[in-house]
């Protein structure tokens, strides 16, 4: 009796808003200006490093991931983000390895998109940091001609890079080890030493604003991070003026890139809104703690990874109060 023309699907029969695919590719798109800026400041080397990291991530996803999972764009984002937080002079094989590690052990092992605990790009970077501490802290100076390589990008796989490039300390390194501050204007425009993509604070903020307006990222997380970092470093500076001030803290190092693009990865940040605030505040506080009292000049990556580890716990602890129930799940009245 039933009419073959008609489908039988469950309600709702309407579909609204963004799709995962569109979100992912929008994020990738918003990274393009940042990549361009990286190429402007660090020349061809920046592009080589980004390309190598992306190739590592994408190839790993292609080989070991579920068939067709490349299409959701998440592997490409991981690769580009990883590339953006490496120094320009890094050997390409290392960047490739980092991308492969991040996707392989940071994502696919958990079952692929949406199920990983740690941000794959940052896990890849943490791996590189622990494996090749020298190579990843050799910062080439910004500027120079486009075609000039900023280090030994073409070192043979597994082989050491011969380092004869012009290096420079990062603003955070200068602050930590020599107590010298860098003008905030330079930080804002990006003409300082550092990872290829983290120096251009302005472009990162613009990209983040675009994504936040499109609601492709949760604005609460970067806002919470910025406010926490500014407040804590403000308090510290007020107590002892040798501590770096809020503006310097905000615009130096990977804070902008991390807060806007890494911490907001929906998969590895809390799903609840209250959780997002807690997460952001936690990242901000850890960044300040590691930068000020830790052994490393930069702590954004570790702060985010540590808070990633907290996310399942935060999620459990911040379950929303169900309508018509009090906070502990009891029926009200």
């Amino acid at each position: 009796m039933s009419d073959p023309r008609f489908e039988l699907t469950a309600s709702p029969h309407l579909k609204g808003g963004a799709t995962t695919r569109r979100i992912m590719w929008s994020v990738t798109g918003s990274l393009v200006p940042i990549v361009a800026a990286a190429a402007y400041f660090f020349g061809l080397s920046a592009l080589l490093v980004i390309a190598a990291a992306t190739a590592g991530a994408v190839l790993t996803e292609r080989v070991f991931g579920t068939p067709g999972s490349l299409g959701d764009g998440s592997a490409a984002i991981t690769g580009v983000l990883l590339g953006l937080c490496l120094p320009a002079g890094m050997p390409m094989w290392m960047a490739f390895l980092g991308g492969a590690f991040g996707i392989g052990f940071g994502k696919l092992i958990f079952g692929g998109l949406g199920q990983n605990v740690f941000n794959p790009a940052l896990l890849g970077r943490a791996f590189l940091q622990a494996a090749f501490p020298t190579a990843i802290t050799t910062w080439p100076a910004a500027g120079g001609s486009f075609t000039q390589l900023r280090g030994d990008n073409f070192a043979l796989p597994l082989m050491r890079a011969s380092s004869d490039a012009v290096t420079e300390a990062t603003p955070l390194g200068l602050m930590k080890f020599e107590a010298t501050s860098t003008p905030v204007g330079d930080l804002f425009m990006g003409s300082t030493a550092g990872s290829v993509g983290e120096t251009a604070a302005l472009l990162i903020l613009l990209g983040g604003a675009y994504l936040a307006i499109k609601r492709y990222l949760d604005w609460r997380i970067p806002v919470a991070i910025f406010v926490t970092v500014a407040a804590l470093s403000g308090i510290l500076t007020a107590i002892d003026s040798t501590y770096p001030g809020p503006l310097f803290m905000l615009f130096s190092g990977g804070l902008m890139l991390g807060a806007v693009y890494m911490a907001t990865d929906p998969v590895t940040s809390p799903v609840t809104r209250r959780g997002a605030w807690i997460f952001g505040v936690g990242v901000g506080a850890l960044v300040v703690v590691i930068r000020v009292w830790g052994g490393l000049p930069e702590g954004v990556m570790y702060a985010i990874l540590l808070m990633n580890a907290m996310v399942p716990f935060i999620n459990q602890a911040t379950q929303p109060r169900v309508f018509g129930r009090s906070g502990d799940g009891m029926v009200t009245a």
Binding site: F105, V117, L123, A126, I290, G294, G299, Y302
Partner: peptide, 26 residues
């Protein structure tokens, strides 16, 4: 990853994340 392998990889990741505390207060 259905055996303890995953747990160890998570432990490795946690261990890497905790490296961020290296040198704290020194």
């Amino acid at each position: 990853a259905r055996n303890m392998g995953l747990v160890l990889i998570v432990a490795a990741s946690l261990s890497m994340a905790f490296m961020g505390f290296a040198g704290l207060l020194s």
